[in-house]
Design a protein around this nucleic acid. Structure first.
Lengths: 214, 214, 214, 214
DNA sequence: ACTGACGGGACAACCCGTTTCT
DNA sequence: AGAAACGGGTTGTCCCGTCAGT
């Protein structure tokens, strides 16, 4: 494809469209995102959009696969590949998430969860693409937990797949709750609960006592 | 609201509209729900709707306040008012939720979370109404945990508000994850993780061992 | 239906829409007819149109069934029901058509043939509806010819169905040719040829000599 | 036109475009034929098209003049130049047309008539070009009839121009009627009627008896 | 000679609200 | 109280034409 010609340089028109679409979709949802808004944000016109994408659906699928998927997997999984103790690692990733998500970012929620709740009942392609990301996310955590078991950091009597699934669910639920409350305090409380659950997975049985009441 | 005037009689036109709106909104989201679809489901016409509600927004707010709020609070909180041990009680409520949510119900997700993720960033009235329900839900659980502390069923060194917030977040996250996966197994795994967290709150320190790997 | 309420009075909104659509479709074809043009001609708006018709297709089908079909059948068949000699009768109908079709009317052609040539290869519903009209038209002529045979006006050794089919084809072909030429002379020449064919069907074997050269 | 410059070589890019455009226009009409479809069929892109043709209209005019005109005139007129008896000759040409036009070909109708009915009221250049072809067609038949008169094959008391015009009209009407019916039987019936008309033009006055009823 | 990106406009479909009338 | 007609606006889609680049 002609795309190869400029694969080296960043900032193709296609990338501009994806970025603008990502921003509007995140704010207004997929159905609520108007193409005119996206195009205004990208500084382009209908002709450009329909040259690169056959439909609004196709644009949305590309945003999911090329923007959201790498972002989520990179943020949550790549630290796990480098760390020694997966529980320590997840603690720090969650802490980082709590810090980064503030102000306007907080009110927008998780782009993956937003799409999932809106589109999965009505669009099978979206649902499949989102399911793929969730599966990779869960498998990445489960693999890290199993590695941690072999190294003696994680209790061996737990089911890594189930724990990973619950961790993902709790993360998404926490962000979603804080998004609606528009209150970073809520997010921190949830992160504390999640941290408590993570500590329950540590080798050495006895969970860490919860930090004193605020 | 005017609904109180005819609260005695069942099956009013207003109730029919609310029920039909609830069904369509749950499936298609609020923006995606067309008034024509709702009206067709109710067997009524525009005139009836705008006689009872001033706008689509007003209809949505009424669905939230009169259908979703009582449903959520009744399902999750009323058992806690009757039980002795809140942790046992929540175990059974969660178990009930896991059983009830299957097939088509599973794919539709939690009506409260659906509305929250879709509307809270773009409609402040919705956000406030949803926030109210989440707050009541969290307070109900926190109150039950505090009562359980006094009775000696719950560890005294935890923060009841934080734990309650995390529980609500984990519940919504679990349903949301299972909704996208369309897989009741996912929901059961998440419930097991949540149960594990709940057991960590028990007086008597040592968490229940997780059931053996499937 | 509510339509019964105003069935007695002429000039319903629906009729206005049909008439305006007929005019624009006849001029620009079905695909070329813009809804905005039709609505401007009717003095109405989108809301009115989509209240009465579910789509542009549905509007087109209604124009075919409620405007074009009665017009064609009434113009060509009702005289045959009253006449004694079908060949005399068709002579006069064809003569009437030649006179009526002039100027702007000539350049627009036959509305039935226009729709047939444009839509029959790409829209099965149109094709079926048009085929129905052509069938009724052919059958009406064939019945009249058979009646004429019994009365001794028409040769008994011809196939009435085949003759009727050819007559319809020749009529449409003649109008179509004159439409493109925008020349009423062409139409008159064709009508003369058709008249010659009709005379060949008369009882008394020997065809009328053609009128002398122009 | 520039086409003459490369008339010697077959399979030029220009010819490819014309062939692809002819195929799509025949199926979808001129307005309905999208340039993207034509280009996809030709395996070329916009740049190639607008290098050879200044607009979609120009492409259509070229299809008419360089594809349709030679095809129609060659099919209908060249046999007449070789035959001795024009009526015998037309019988065989019509019979050939009846045999060749079947299945998918039947449903597409006559490319000349298709263009005429769609475009002649809205595009004067098309109308003129089509009129030219019809005129040449009619004149070719009329000339053959006049030659036949001199040789004694054709009745001398008819107007050759009028007869030729009616023959062309009847041919187009017959193909058009069969196209809509999607029934080769209709076409055969019409051809029989046309054959009957042709026999009425023979020297020797008495028309051939029609074949017995089917 | 030909490619691909892009501009800009038009169209059908849909949707929410209002109003009139029964 | 409710049915039906209608207004007015927005959205996704598609399509023709141009232009810089090779």
């Amino acid at each position: 494809m002609g795309g190869q010609l400029r694969a080296g340089g960043a900032g193709t028109t296609r990338d501009t469209l994806l970025a603008a679409a990502y921003a509007v979709i995140r704010r207004d949802g997929f159905k609520g995102a108007s193409l005119d808004d996206i195009l205004a944000g990208a500084g382009l016109t209908k002709g450009a959009l329909y040259h690169h994408f056959s439909s609004k659906q196709a644009l949305g699928y590309a945003v999911l696969a090329e923007i959201i998927e790498p972002y989520v997997l990179d943020f949550w999984l790549s630290p796990l590949a480098l760390c020694d103790d997966p529980i320590d690692c997840m603690h720090s990733v969650i802490g980082q998430a709590c810090e980064e998500i503030d102000g306007e970012e907080l009110a927008l929620g998780c782009p993956l969860n937003n799409l999932a709740q809106e589109m999965s009942p009505v669009d099978e392609v979206f649902r499949t693409g989102i399911d793929r990301i969730y599966r990779l996310w869960r498998e990445g955590i489960a693999d890290a937990l199993r590695t941690g078991m072999r190294k003696g950091h994680v209790r061996a009597d737990i089911d890594a797949d189930r724990a990973a699934t619950f961790i993902v669910a709790a993360v998404e639920g926490s962000i979603g709750l804080a998004k609606n409350a528009q209150d970073p305090e809520i997010l921190r409380h949830c992160c504390a609960g999640l941290a408590q659950f993570l500590d329950g997975l540590r080798q050495g049985d006895r969970p860490m006592p919860v930090e004193g009441r605020g």
